[in-house]
Computed example of a mutant assay.
Amino acid sequence: MTPITTFFRNLEAKCCASCGQVISEQAESYATECYTCQDQASTDAYKHYYKKN
């Protein structure tokens, strides 16, 4: 059985699903996008919502 520290040390770098940039966070996080892409998506959603009203 592989020690857990060895397992996490051997994981590949996690990359953003939108732009491909390496995400510097813990590997067990559920995030799939970097903070820049998350912020841009939030801004776009906000603008789209308020543009309709």
Rank of each mutant, 00 (worst) to 15 (best):
M1H: 04
T2V: 13
T2H: 06
T2M: 11
P3N: 13
P3D: 12
P3H: 13
P3Y: 08
I4W: 02
I4C: 05
T5I: 09
T5W: 01
T5M: 05
T5A: 07
T6A: 04
T6H: 02
F7N: 00
F7M: 03
F7Y: 14
F7V: 04
R9G: 03
N10R: 08
N10G: 05
L11K: 12
L11H: 05
E12S: 09
E12M: 07
A13W: 01
A13G: 05
K14Y: 02
C15D: 03
C15M: 09
C15V: 13
C15N: 07
C15P: 01
C15Q: 08
C15I: 11
C16Y: 04
C16R: 02
C16L: 00
A17K: 15
S18T: 10
S18L: 05
S18W: 02
S18G: 04
S18P: 01
G20Y: 08
Q21R: 10
Q21A: 15
Q21M: 14
V22H: 02
V22M: 06
V22T: 11
I23A: 00
I23S: 00
I23V: 01
I23E: 00
S24E: 15
S24H: 14
S24G: 07
E25T: 06
Q26F: 06
Q26P: 04
Q26Y: 05
A27T: 06
A27P: 06
E28S: 12
E28H: 11
E28V: 08
S29I: 04
S29G: 06
S29W: 04
S29T: 14
Y30G: 15
Y30C: 13
A31V: 12
T32I: 11
T32F: 02
T32Y: 03
E33C: 08
E33M: 11
E33Y: 05
C34Q: 00
Y35L: 14
T36N: 14
T36P: 03
T36E: 14
T36F: 00
C37W: 09
C37A: 05
C37P: 01
Q38D: 07
Q38F: 00
Q40F: 04
A41H: 01
A41Y: 00
S42P: 02
S42C: 10
T43M: 12
D44G: 04
D44H: 07
A45L: 14
Y46E: 09
K47C: 09
K47L: 15
Y50L: 13
Y50V: 14
K51A: 10
K52N: 09
K52H: 10
N53Q: 15
N53W: 13
N53G: 10
N53E: 15
